[in-house]
């Protein structure tokens, strides 16, 4: 399973790539693998205020609907509209296809997230 080193992770299997006060957010390889073929992505709204650990959308696969949680609090700066047309991109390249870019309102939120190593150990406990 692919877990890139430089990203931070949530227990709900989202990743965030932080650059200053901007964070690209997506779902992990583990998430896409377990969900199976993804058929629909409900993106957050542009400019929407999201809160760390709160729902910001849903992903529907052939197996289930899963809630998407924001890893951090902040404002949605950009959403990846390509996923509305081609939700399967999340299966093909989960780290190359971000879902939203969030402007962080509190860098402290990052302390609650897992490193790649921690996330790897966490995933092992789920198997």
């Amino acid at each position: 399973m692919n877990i890139p080193k430089k990203l931070l992770y949530t227990k709900e299997h989202e990743w965030i790539k932080v650059n200053g006060d901007k964070g690209h957010v997506g779902i992990t390889d583990y998430a896409q693998h377990h969900l199976g073929d993804i058929v629909f992505v409900e993106l957050p709204e542009l400019d929407e205020e999201v809160a760390a650990g709160e729902s910001m959308g849903v992903v529907e696969s052939v197996k289930a609907v899963a809630t998407l949680f924001s890893p951090v609090s902040g404002q949605v700066m950009e959403v990846n509209e390509e996923l509305e047309e081609a939700p399967e991109l999340l299966n093909e390249d989960p780290y190359g296809n971000w879902i939203a870019i969030i402007e962080l309102s509190d860098q402290g939120d990052l302390e609650g997230l897992m490193s790649a190593d921690e996330y790897k150990s966490y995933c092992e406990t789920l198997e």
């Binding site: 227990k11 709900e12 197996k63 289930a64 609907v65 899963a66 809630t67």
Partner: peptide
């Protein structure tokens, strides 16, 4: 049949 997952519950 269908499933929904949310915060560790199914």
């Amino acid at each position: 049949n269908a499933q929904f997952k949310y915060r560790g519950r199914l």
